[in-house]
């Protein structure tokens, strides 16, 4: 029972990180139908920015989180303008190849600058922990930070999407780009906002992972990127609550499989769930199939 509670906390933390990354995949897919395979690498860049800010500038956790989010959002906007915008309207395979190229460019570009070796993230949150149930359940402060920051970011995202003009424009463009244009929405600018926000969330995830798992390297974005993508598909790609649900679901399942079934199986289970969802509910667990009214 206590062991289970401990694992639930770990699952929530991992799931939060997947959810933050999955949001970027799903938002970009929702608006331009592109699977941005470079998204996991933006998260990697976020981790390195956090690393640089804490080790070179000696700033604390929150400044590094904010700076990383800002840098990643700018990077995301530049990637969209330089790589994806010119091929908008081309075939999906062209878009896919471009996304993979951007991904490789970021991975090996980063390797050129920081070398391939693994770095150890400084412990910026201290070693404090919360002991529950007479000390048999230990909640690391790191876990609390991860979950709390994820919740704050998601509330902020929800606010932006529901209440602000930019957010409404994002929803309108993803529902019907041409109709949004007829309302006067600037589609290019709206796509930029989407990349900025999605990339900022990935940047935050990068810093949180650095803090949580303490090691970072230039290829660290590949597997979590893939997992977050799976999470987005499980939840229903293009559906924002789906990304959050899919991320938490996958994080929880992986943690439980690692704890009780052996960590060797966790990736296999992730893919098995993906295949099951694709077979049984291709639009995702929270996805909707809206039929157009004629």
């Amino acid at each position: 029972m206590k062991e289970l509670l401990q694992q639930v906390i770990n699952g929530l933390s991992l799931g939060s990180i997947y959810a933050l990354i999955a949001l970027g995949y799903t938002m970009v897919y929702g608006i331009i139908n592109l699977i941005n395979f470079a998204h996991g690498d933006i998260y990697m860049v976020g981790a390195y920015v956090g690393f640089a800010v804490t080790t070179s500038l000696h700033l604390g956790f929150f400044p590094s989180l904010v700076i990383s989010m800002v840098v990643c959002s700018i990077l995301g906007v530049i990637i969209e303008k330089v790589a994806y915008k010119p091929i908008r309207g081309s075939s999906r395979i062209a878009a896919l190849i471009t996304a993979i190229s951007v991904s490789l460019f970021l991975e090996y570009g980063m390797m050129y600058f920081v070398k391939a070796e693994t770095r150890t993230f400084p412990n910026v949150l201290g070693k404090n922990s919360l002991k529950l149930l007479d000390g048999s359940v230990v909640i690391d402060y790191k876990n609390i930070y991860i979950v709390a920051i994820t919740i704050i970011l998601m509330v902020a995202l929800q606010y932006i999407i529901r209440r602000t003009k930019a957010g409404k424009a994002m929803r309108a463009v993803s529902l019907d780009r041409e109709a949004a244009q007829l309302m006067g929405v600037n589609v290019d600018r709206t796509i930029s906002y989407t990349f900025a926000i999605g990339s900022a969330l990935a940047g935050a995830a990068g810093v949180l992972v650095g803090v949580y798992y303490t090691t970072i390297n230039p290829l660290m974005g590949i597997v979590p990127g893939l997992k977050a993508f799976i999470a987005a598909v499980i939840g229903g790609i293009g559906v924002i609550p789906g990304a959050v649900f899919g991320g938490l679901f996958l994080g929880m399942i992986e943690t439980m499989v690692s704890a009780y079934g052996g960590s060797l199986y966790k990736d296999a289970v992730a893919f098995a769930i993906l295949i099951l969802v694709l077979l049984l509910r291709p639009s995702g667990l929270l996805g909707r199939n809206i039929k157009e009214k004629v």
Binding site: K165, K168, A169, R171, A172, L175, D176, E178, A179, A180, L182, M183, G184, V185, I290, E292, K293, V294
Partner: peptide
Amino acid sequence: ISHVPEGRRIFSNMTVMENLEMGAFL
């Protein structure tokens, strides 16, 4: 100039009010 497109093209996943707000976007 305002263009009401063929096939209505309302934002189906938004409320009536939000659709009208989109009309006043600029």
